[in-house]
Amino acid sequence: MGKTLTILLNRGPYISEYADLALRVALKAREKGHNVNMYLYVDGPWVAHVRQDKPYHNSGMLLRQAMEKGVNVKICNRCAEARDLVPGDALEGIPMVGLFDFTEWLRESDRVLTFTG
């Protein structure tokens, strides 16, 4: 029986390795049968902004893969709004929600990883 892992990602792509670390942990945890949530917070929503294919490393593609594998992804609506990131800018199918959704995830999680700082 899988456990529930919630990942908080505060960093955007192409600034540090955090987005990729977070997503690769999410993918592996999913592969191992765990329930995985990922909350894109602060600069994290920029990962969802990377929609096109690139001839180089692509965090947006990893996020797409994670969603296809059943990772639950949500974007902080205020973080998105502050960055003028509207739903049409982000990968399809990611709800933009308030922090309460994140605290709900915290409540139901066995483990939480925070990629911040």
Binding site: K3, L5, R24, V25, L27, K28, A29, K32, H34, D110, R111, V112, L113, T114, F115, T116, G117
Partner: peptide, 19 residues
């Protein structure tokens, strides 16, 4: 790396901090 890390996070460690 990720296989090992996920097992540590989910099965072995109770608390995890990332620095």
């Amino acid at each position: 790396t990720y296989d090992g890390l996920v097992d540590l996070v989910m099965e072995r460690w109770d608390k995890v901090i990332i620095l």
